[in-house]
Design a binder for these strands. Structure first.
Lengths: 319, 319
DNA sequence: GGCTTCCCATAAATGTGGTTGATAGGTTGC
DNA sequence: GCAACCTATCAACCACATTTATGGGAAGCC
């Protein structure tokens, strides 16, 4: 059996062309290196190096061996790295800051999967709207920020972080059951413009205004609440119409509201933002489970036909 | 650095599901195996096995490591096999630099024999006059230099190399057919001195001048060409006389030239020069076949009675 | 050519690490 | 609850790797 330790010494001899230099490089004495090479040669039964001027050159057999050793050493490094990742999952910690809807609609499933895969990882979760979540991330007070961004909002480019796109969350139109729009195949603009609107958080309101403006009217927004149950109940009572992300709709659908079978009226992009650079194993694992969760969910879910996953597999992009 | 030896022990533990069984299988004691696993775990910083009923099971980290170890062990076996192939002449490479006459008169037969004995050995051949061949050898750009040396040339003593004498190549006198000297049993000095001479390479010319001077005259050298066919044709046309090594004469004998049955007018020593020290198997094999080739050739060949192999069997001597 | 410098090979002494044998603790199955 | 079996730990022994010391050679530089 060839000893990898000796193989590494041979590699160093090959690289430096001298046993003495290899000894220096490896913090050995020269006779130690000499001895190891001799042992290696005895084991394989053929010369591996020949003296050449000052120093030594490899024979063909030596070159062949070094080539294999190179690959093997790289492979062992891989193994060690992989094990370190697993070891990290044994005692890791992840802090997640996540906007409320995802805290209910995405994280529980992802965390359950993580618990199964890495029971030792301790997860703490705080809910925070995207700006606050990113602030926490910048301050180093969270490891992952799960955020969303509407199309009209500019992506802030901060090279210190990476955005992993998780899903496109389509916006559905919500009207009271029995409302004329409930059965309309294509809502007419003037009908929408005549409605009273309810809306959620500040960013959602901004988006609603932006989208309506682009369509050619200014919505009459009479109600504003971040609670998606409350907002649905306002609709159910016939007080307003609204738009709601499919994710929120999946958490709770109030009786008395109708979701017209019309194309999505827009969408928001849900992403996980993490610090750039190497990720601690626990963080990488939770990211994995997050992407896997949304992938499984959208694959199984046929209700929201506009609910499109990103065209390509979730990939890292500069924020 | 992960020790492959321990990796193999872990593999056996994984295979058999028990340290005791692995110890039996590897002819170790149980504590030895236990100790090795513990060391391995200390090195990677995470448990690799967990007790499970009677025996042990691998953790995920353990499974990952075993997987890598399997591949690495296979790879090391490949390496050993490949080296064994080189050592066993089933593979390998030899580079030969050889002077032109020997490239035609010696190498083809020797290489054919080598091919038969070691079909896997790849040979590359370049022709080079002795000084260039030795330069290639010194630079490490060839494994064997086949060279010749006239008696008047001093052997250069370079302890880094070994000279294996292959043959003494006698110089034959060549005259036009029908020439008075063609039938002379002993050419008279004044007849030779009166002739016009042709000669080959620079070293051959030097030797001709040196030999003639020793005999007591200065030759009139009118023609110089390294091509031994050209030189023979000059003789055949009656333009000159010359000397030619028997080896060259064996390659081609031009109609119209006569080789007087007189003692050889000198000789050159043909040698193979190789780096001192242990020889790669393929190099040693080609050296063998070279000596065997000249031995067989001179044994079978009765035409040049003066063509003497060295008194002793070819042996290594410092150049 | 003689000198210095650098490199490899070998031999003996030393220290670290592997192996062994004995033993204790824990789990399974009857 | 007992017996069988397996792993963990400890101390002693042994082997091997490494070091220190030394000699021989080759390369480069006056």
């Amino acid at each position: 059996m060839l000893d990898l330790h000796r193989g590494r010494i041979l590699r160093e001899v090959a690289r430096l062309g001298s046993m003495t230099a290899a000894a220096r490089s490896l913090a050995y004495t020269q006779p130690a290196v000499s001895h190891h090479i001799a042992r290696l040669e005895a084991e394989v039964g053929t010369p591996l190096v020949v003296r050449h001027g000052r120093g030594v050159r490899l024979t063909e057999a030596g070159r062949v061996l070094v080539e294999h050793v190179e690959d093997v050493l790289a492979r062992m490094d891989d193994a060690q790295e992989q094990i370190a990742a697993i070891a990290g999952l044994r005692s890791g910690r992840v802090r997640v800051a996540v906007f409320p809807t995802a805290a209910g609609g995405l994280l529980p499933d992802a965390l359950a999967r993580l618990r199964e895969r890495a029971p030792g990882v301790a997860v703490t979760l705080v809910d925070a709207e995207p700006p606050e979540a990113l602030a926490l991330l910048r301050a180093g007070d969270t490891d992952i920020a799960v955020v969303f961004r509407y199309a009209h909002m500019p992506p802030d480019t901060d090279a210190r972080f990476r955005e992993v796109v998780l899903a496109e969350d389509p916006l559905r139109l919500l009207v009271p059951a029995g409302h004329p729009l409930a059965s309309a195949e294509r809502p007419r603009l003037e009908d929408l413009a005549a409605e009273t609107w309810a809306s959620g958080c500040a960013r959602c309101r901004d988006h609603l205004r932006w989208a309506c403006e682009r369509a050619g009217f200014a919505p009459d927004i009479a109600f504003a609440t971040e609670d998606h149950v409350a907002i649905q109940r306002l609709v159910a009572r016939g007080l307003a119409v609204t738009t709601l992300p499919a994710l929120a709709l999946g958490l709770h659908t109030e009786p008395g509201v109708a979701v017209p079978d019309v194309p999505a009226v827009g969408s928001r992009r849900i992403s996980a933002v993490v610090p750039a650079g190497p990720r601690p194993p626990a963080v990488a694992a939770l990211l994995d489970e997050l992407t896997a969760t949304v992938h499984d969910a959208t694959a199984a879910d046929t209700t929201p036909p506009g609910a499109a996953t990103p065209d390509t597999a979730p990939r890292d992009t500069a924020v």
